[in-house]
Every structure is written in C-alpha cells, then in structure tokens.
Design a protein around this nucleic acid. Structure first.
Lengths: 208, 208
DNA sequence: CGTATGTTTGAGGATTATCAATGAAAGTGG
DNA sequence: CCACTTTCATTGATAATCCTCAAACATACG
C-alpha cells in the first residue's frame, strides 16, 4: 500500500506557475483542490463596488480552492513563480474516504485554518493600522523561503495594494505604517520588495 | 451497525444549560467538542487590554470547541436555556476514523465554516456600521427558532455589547444603526430583545 | 525612452470611537 | 413585594483614526 503522500501525488497534477498566473476566478465551477509546493498564491474576492478583499496568502504546504457550493468564491493568483499541485475534487474525496488518517490530517488542517481566521478577525477589528502591518510582517517572517534569518532581509512577493486589501486598510495607510516602523528603526526599506527587519523590535511592536 | 447519528449520541454527553452557563474558558485544556441541539452559545475571546471579540454565535446543529493546540482559545457561554451535546475529543476522533463518511461530513462542515468566516472578514473590513447590523439581523432571521415568519418578530438572545463585539464596532454604534433602521421603517423595536422585521426592506438594505 | 503602474507623502474630510448623561430593565436582599 | 443596585440601552457632543483626493516620485515594461 503506497504511502499517503505517494497516493496523493498519484492523483495530483503538478503545475508550474509564473507571477500573475490565474489559477481560478470567483464564479468558476470548483473542480480542483490546490496545494502550494513553492511560491505564493493570493486568494482574493472582488466586490460589486470594485473594492477587493485579499482573504489569504497561501505559502508552501497550504491548501486552497475548497468550493463548498460547487463554485469558487474567490480568485487565486500566483504572485511568484512556483509549483502548485492540484487534485480533482472527486478523486481526492475518494482517496480521503479510503484513507481515514489522511482525511483526519485534512480535518486538522481545516480546524487550524479556522483558528487562524479567528486570529485574523480579532486583528482586523481591534487593532490599528501599524499593529496590523506589524502582524503581517511577523507572519511573513515565519516563511523561511522568504525571510533570510542571517541577513534579516524579508522578501515580499506582494504589492502594497495586496497588503492593504489583506489587512482591510488603504494602500496609503500601509505606506505610512511602514514609514512609522522605519523611523522607529524596526525595519529598513531596501527596496519596495525587500525589507531589513529587526525581529526583536518588531515583536515588541506587536501588542497582541 | 448503528447509524452515524446513533453512534455519535452513544459517545456524547447531553447537557442542559441556563442563560449565562459557562461551557469553557479560554486557556482551559480542550477535552471536548461541542454541538448545539437548541439554544444559542456565544464564542468570545478576551484581549489583554480588556476588549472582547465575539467570534461567533453557535445555533442549533453548529459545532464548536475545536482546540488545535490542545487548549481552548475562546470562551463559550450559553445565552439561552438550551441543550448541548459534548464529545470527548479522543472518542470522537476514534469514531471518525472508523466512519470515513461521517468524518467527511465533519470536513465539509469545517470547509463551510471557513467559507462563512471569509464572508465575515469581508463584511467586517469593507462595510459601514449600518450594513454590518443589517447583515447580522439577516443572519439571525435565518434561524427558524428565533424568527417567527408569520408575526415577523425576531427574538435576539444576545445583548447589544454582544452584537457590537461580534461586528467589531462600539455598542453605541449598534444602537444608532438600529435607530436608523427604525426610522427607515425596516425594523421596529418592540423591546430590547424583540424586533419586528420587514424582511424585504431589510434585504434591500444589504448591498453585499 | 516613454508610458503605465506602483509607491510615498501631504491636506482635508468622513466615519466611527470615546466620553458623558439619562432612562429602562433586571437581578438582589430585605 | 418593594427599594436598591447593577447592568443595559439610547442619545448627544467631542475627538481621533483612517480614507479619499491629489501630487510627486520611483520602478517596471514595451
């Protein structure tokens, strides 16, 4: 009996993506479940009035593309070049039903996701802009592939509007928050997508 | 082989609760998973500075009490008298592993929950106070046990601070929003916990 | 090299939180 | 059962945060 991982890969389809690749659009029929192997994917939702909410960034090992109603509620776009694996929903369901422990790992992943979203709701409704940006940076610094712990350089694959729409604030507010943090010597903007980070000071800024 | 439901009840423990009953506190070790049979449970989280976020109200058939890290992150309090069933986490896990289809229903419930929370994040970061209150009222009107569709009376088991902390606004803002809706003849406050609702007008108010 | 896109900074305005006061409801103990 | 206390709800005035608009600047792309 093949291992869970091998069985998954057997029904999976690997895709290499370039920055800007669209994985799916909101309204598309939800045929696949996706998992990130490398790179970053932006999950976003467009509103009737033209505003956009970024609901998540999905990094290595994250799952996305669940469509409980049969169609995708969100857009998924690659921000980086990377590798994504996707699974036909029915095939994955069959595999999960045949492998209870594997399904249980998915269930745990889902409950962990619920817990993370609860943290996010708290962050977005109770804290000011600077704190939100600090929390966002801390989140990014946990991704080894994007934060070099020796040089302390954080590479941000997303734009300022992406960050703003993720935290539910205006783009300009993100810029100003970064300005505040730079004046406090918590970060240093090397260029738009590369920040030098003083992790201990950054953690002090987070009164969570 | 007993049905899934019977098997669940066999390992479950029913509890009757009075208004104000504490089911668990944040920080308690997470020993049980809960399911509401009747009544309403408030899931909330206290912050260091004394502020509180209400993360969810759990109605009939809703599940709560998942503790991915082994301890509860939130408080759970009954708002109403009602019946709750709780399951030892390990026993439930054993049952789920033995019954893949039952586990799959839990997985679907979890992904549906993730989807609902995404709606909530959008609601809380993109809309104004009145729209938030409208969305909250519409959510409550879907609960047959609390909205009488012939008299059009909605019974709210929660207080204004509960609603405010749920939507991430100030208590006073909820009062003002209800005042606006009453002046627009969308609702009529019979008393604090009983609103007469004009559903079609309420739906018009929701530009979601 | 020019255009389009993304970023930063400033000024003004709008929404909502905070503070304060009043009134209503509910729970407590005599 | 009633006075008392406490909590909850509503309304008004003020203040703060953040969004919007606008311009200057930097960067990326054809």
């Amino acid at each position: 009996m093949p291992s869970d991982h091998a069985a998954l890969m057997a029904i999976g389809e690997a895709v290499t993506v370039r920055p800007g690749s669209k994985l799916f659009r909101q309204g598309d029929t939800g045929t696949h479940i996706y998992m990130v192997e490398s790179g970053v994917v932006r999950i976003s939702h467009d509103l009737p009035d033209g505003k956009r909410q970024v609901l998540a960034f999905r990094w290595a090992h994250d799952v996305f593309g669940m469509a409980p109603d049969g169609w995708y509620f969100n857009n998924a776009d690659a921000l980086d070049k990377g590798r994504i694996v996707r699974f036909h929903t029915e095939k994955l369901q069959g595999l999960l039903l045949a492998r209870p422990h594997m399904q249980h790992r998915f269930l745990l992943k889902a409950t962990a996701e619920i817990s993370l979203q609860q943290h996010r709701i708290i962050l977005m409704s109770k804290y000011d802009v600077v704190t939100k940006v600090v929390a966002f940076l801390l989140e990014c610094c946990r991704k080894d592939q994007y934060f070099d712990s020796v040089t302390r350089i954080l590479t941000l694959p997303m734009s300022r509007p992406d960050i703003a729409d993720y935290m539910g604030v205006a783009t300009e507010s993100v810029s100003r928050a970064l300005g505040v943090l730079e004046r406090r010597k918590v970060i240093h903007r090397h260029d738009m997508h590369h920040l030098a980070i003083d992790l201990s000071r950054l953690r002090e800024c987070a009164r969570l």
